[in-house]
């Protein structure tokens, strides 16, 4: 257990370090500068701004300064949104993304896992085929097609839900449903694969031969190992949903982290992009760790090793 946590921690540190290093030099290699878009900025004013934000120093110095600040908990100021700290922007948008991410993940699990189990139980029968076609639909009819369809079919005629925005509690429903389909689709495929694998094992045949009822075989014997591939997928999927939901945020005007990232890139807000990427790397590490720990609890072989 401790070894798993430590090795995941080490891996996260390496990944975050590489990620931030790459991003640091990558954003600065994008042609243009963060202050060029501002109205009537003379070269002198631009130089003053650059000096203020420490962008006039040589790159290696800037790089070391950045790490120095990060270690002290300072992600720097946003270059595009004057007077706002990157940490404030993240702490405002993260709860929104987290809420949306958790809800859609649970919805996705609620749809995907039962679908996968049904498909495996009725292997090569119509239930299997229809479940897999539904799963394929979840992969192929992507968020930016689904989102507008939901807006048109659900939000408009019902008029209970807002088409877009983030003012009422119910505003989370449509984006969460839109986001959950992709997760559900992958979960269904993974669960089906895992279940089929387990059902062909000898110990399941033994249980059948003993006359254990099918329902009990599934819940008591097959379920836990069958869900392992799905659980492995959940960790990275969770991290990806939280920061990678640019599209859904864009459609439903959700004030989450994705929009900051897109804006940060287009306005060359170095600090904002770096802060988000750093945060994302850490989040990914935590999500992976959680799924590692869940796997240890599910698999006795891992627990004892």
């Amino acid at each position: 257990m401790l070894r798993v946590i430590l090795s995941r921690l080490l891996q996260t540190i390496v990944v975050v370090f590489l990620l931030v290093t790459f991003t640091f030099f990558a954003v600065r290699a994008i042609p243009g500068n963060p202050f060029a878009a501002e109205k009537a900025t003379s070269p002198e004013e631009q130089a003053a701004l650059e000096a203020y934000y420490g962008l006039d120093k040589p790159l290696p110095i800037q790089y070391l300064n950045y790490w120095g600040n990060v270690i002290q908990g300072d992600f720097g100021d946003s270059l595009a949104m004057k007077g706002r700290k990157v940490s404030t922007l993240i702490s405002e948008s993260f709860p929104v993304s987290l809420k949306l991410g958790i809800l859609s993940l649970f919805l996705g699990m609620g749809i995907g896992i039962p679908l996968g189990i049904i498909a495996a139980l009725f292997h090569n029968k119509w239930q299997d085929y229809s479940a897999m076609v539904i799963a394929m639909a979840g992969i192929c009819i992507v968020a930016f097609v689904l989102g507008p369809i939901f807006q048109l079919l659900i939000a408009k005629p019902l008029s209970l839900l807002n088409v877009a925005g983030w003012n009422r509690g119910s505003d989370i429903i449509l984006p969460a449903i839109t986001l959950c389909f992709g997760v559900a689709a992958y979960l269904a495929r993974l669960t089906r694969g895992g279940m089929l694998d387990v059902l062909s094992q000898d110990y399941i045949r033994t249980a059948r031969a003993k006359g254990v009822p099918t329902m009990q075989i599934i819940t008591k014997h097959a379920m836990r190992p069958a869900l392992m591939p799905a659980v492995t997928f959940l960790g990275p999927a969770f991290a990806a949903i939280i920061t990678g939901s640019f599209v859904v945020e864009n459609i439903f005007l959700v004030p989450g982290m994705g929009q900051h990232f897109v804006l940060g890139i287009t306005s060359k807000d170095y600090n904002l992009v770096l802060g988000l990427v750093l945060f994302y790397g850490i989040l990914m590490g935590i999500a992976n760790l959680l799924s590692d720990i869940a796997l240890i609890f599910m698999d006795p072989k891992l627990r004892n090793s």
């Binding site: 891996q11 990944v15 790459f22 990558a26 994008i30 042609p31 243009g32 890139i265 990914m284």
Partner: peptide, 25 residues
């Protein structure tokens, strides 16, 4: 493995921005 652990879309976006400046020139 190290590169696979990176968030794909974010890296692609950054990479594209860099290349596209040079290609535009």
């Amino acid at each position: 493995d190290g590169l696979l652990a990176m968030p794909f879309l974010i890296i692609v976006i950054l990479f594209r921005e860099i290349i596209s400046g040079h290609v535009d020139d």
